[in-house]
Simulated scan of single mutants.
Amino acid sequence: MVNNEEDSDVDAEDTTEIDAVELVDAVEPAEGCEDAVAQEEEEAEPVAQTPEFSYPKWYTLRMEAVAFQNEKLQDIAKNHKDPNAQLLAMQMGVFSPYENAEEAIAVWQALAEKFDADFVATYITPELERIELVHTRTLNNEALVPGQKVPAFTLANLDGDDVSLYDLAGTKDMVLIDFWASWCGPCIATFPELKKLHAAYTDENFEIVGVSVDDNLEDWSGGVEDHQLPWVQLGELKDADNGSPVSVSYGINFIPSTFLIDSQGCIYRKNIHTSELKDFLVDRYGMDESLVEPEEEPEETPEISS
């Protein structure tokens, strides 16, 4: 129900304060992380020029129509005098939580002042909290660039023992943090190559730390067993109902998400493809690119003469 006590217009410039990791200047590396930035700049390849591509006329017209529709709906959401019209426009998802989060948050907050408490709790607060969470994750993710340090965390492994990321990383040369889940097809697709790299470079103090974001322990342990994952496994499971603080602090909005760090927690690469990871490790450790040792042929059983 509409609360008529206040009927103020929405100021699109108003934003809410988000409890996020403070954004940092990527030009200034964190203390002790200068090598991470220097190496990334040294290995950076020039961006290839992509050939010009033109969409079919029907597609261009369709996108123009969608843009026109969104523009009108956004205007209704921000400026219409009827809160019900504003609410309907917002429920149509006219603001992307990834691109227009601050505008969406401002509108939802203003709408919360125009409806009664029960209505707000049922229809507005959940949407507002969802967008605020996505926005927080996005800001945190943008702050975690090569040359910065990853947030510290401690999570339990499958045996229930707590493992500190920084304690583990301190005993290694390089660590790949891999956020994944048992239901994630793209995550699973990386496992064969990651297994080869893990086997080849374990003696060089390279480690992988998988962080499962599965719904429950059964799904997580089943995924590890099904795919025979040999590296460190930690879990931040949704059924713990603790708000997933590690995933939030790392800005995980999609998986797989990876961070390649050194023993000090400095980020060297972010969301690195397995082929790029292979090149990085080969360059760092000077190992042959074959990675996999040839299998030994079984010895022939000598014939027994009669």
Rank of each mutant, 00 (worst) to 15 (best):
T125M: 02
G243H: 09
P192S: 15
A143G: 11
D118F: 10
A20I: 08
T258W: 09
N141H: 13
Q49F: 09
A12T: 06
P256I: 08
E13A: 14
T16F: 00
V232S: 08
V24M: 08
L73H: 02
T125C: 07
Q74L: 01
F153V: 01
V37K: 06
K149E: 00
A48G: 07
V150Q: 07
N216F: 04
S249D: 08
L144K: 08
A106Q: 00
N100H: 15
E45H: 13
S263Y: 03
P298R: 08
G235W: 03
A85K: 06
K196S: 10
G147Q: 09
D219V: 02
E99D: 15
F115M: 06
A117I: 05
D226L: 12
R62K: 04
E276M: 14
E303Y: 04
L158A: 09
I252C: 11
Y59I: 05
L73G: 10
H273P: 02
K72M: 12
K72E: 14
T154Y: 15
P245I: 05
L277M: 10
A101Q: 06
V2A: 01
M287F: 03
T136P: 00
G243Y: 10
I252N: 13
Q148I: 05
I177P: 03
Y55I: 07
V21K: 12
A199Y: 12
V282L: 15
P146Y: 05
A110M: 02
A12I: 12
L73T: 13
R269N: 08
D173K: 15
F68D: 14
L87M: 07
E52L: 07
E43Y: 15
P51F: 14
E6F: 03
A65D: 13
G210K: 04
D159I: 09
Q86G: 01
L144E: 03
A156G: 04
V150M: 10
M90E: 11
E41K: 14
E296T: 14
P46V: 06
E218P: 05
G170T: 01
Y59Q: 00
T258C: 15
G147E: 08
T301S: 00
I188V: 09
I267S: 00
V248W: 01
N3Q: 00
E40Q: 15
V134C: 04
A36Q: 09
E71G: 11
H198S: 01
V27Q: 07
Y55T: 05
L139D: 00
E132H: 12
S212D: 03
L194I: 08
V163C: 09
M1F: 04
L281F: 14
L88H: 10
A121S: 05
D7R: 12
E6Q: 15
Q228T: 09
V246P: 02
F153N: 00
D241W: 04
V145Q: 09
